[in-house]
Amino acid sequence: MSSDSVKKFSDQVLNDPSSLLFASLADFYRENGLFQEALSICQNGLESHPENTEGRLVLAQCCRALGDIQQARTELTRVLKSHPENALAKKLLAELDRAGESTLEPAREKPEELAPESLTATEPLAVSPGPAPAEQVTEPPAEPAPEARASDQQPAPPMIEPPEEFHQGAKAMMVLAAESAGRAEPGEARAEILEYQEPSPASVTAAAEPPSPPAEPAREQPAPTAEESGAYARILGEVAKTPQVHSALLADESGYPVASALAPGAAPLDEEAAGALASLVFSIASQAMQKIKLGNLERAVIDTRNEKIFLSRAGSQVLSVAADSSAKVGLVAVNLKRAVERLNALSQQ
């Protein structure tokens, strides 16, 4: 990602104080060690969106990194007050309590440790199966911060190479922003997701890394195993077989692609961009529906000139299906619903 692209994305957010993307930009700055800048962006953004969980979590991490432990505690406590189930807030607070902050380097954090959950704008949707957050908080001391930092220095498994070690969701959004500004660089910075190839005729792929568990040591939701990835891919593959459907993609709430499937003959899917888009749109729409007091968003259909995009909540993930604009909405919706039920059942196993 060029510095021009970063600047354009930054300008886009800074010129639009009401944009919900401020938290992603701040997270990007934070992950690159620009804590003061990240702090300012968060403070400005939270003036417009004081209830934005993601922004408040990034702010808390910045405060911690800058040594303002008291403020970090205040922010995390505030998040937990409104979202008692927020696993990341619990985890960060537990880290503050456990380590007394003495073992954490204020100037350098492990990017992979907090990145995926730092974009949990859809936190209210995170229907996590009961014990998960508690498990995160009571992690065994086998993964304390010092060890995590040690593993950070090992060159082998990082998902993102330096100097692009920032959050993939933020990066995907930056790619989108750069492309929107006419800087189409579709191939740039999109090769980090390792792919699991399901040997099926429906060209099914799943983004997972069966042989390398250290690649995602700090995800609060455990990385899918090869079996789970295969199951995800099969479920998505069936959705992709629906007439006039091009592709199906499962992304987590941070926009990371979890699995995807293409209909036979369909053009390749840019998983990273599609995942970021699905997560972003679902997050914004969820917040809006709650403000309008219509409850939790379950499904969205976006009608464009050339296609229909179906988004559906699947636990804490978002299932996105792209189809022709002439696709039968009811048929796709039925298959989508069935897939969501199977995905939910899978995640409960």
Partner: peptide
């Protein structure tokens, strides 16, 4: 977001939530 991804324009959106 759509314009960034692939020169699309939004014609309509349906949002289905638990209460409406």
């Amino acid at each position: 977001a759509l314009a960034a991804g692939r020169e699309e324009e939004v014609h309509g959106v349906q949002l289905m939530a638990s209460s409406g």
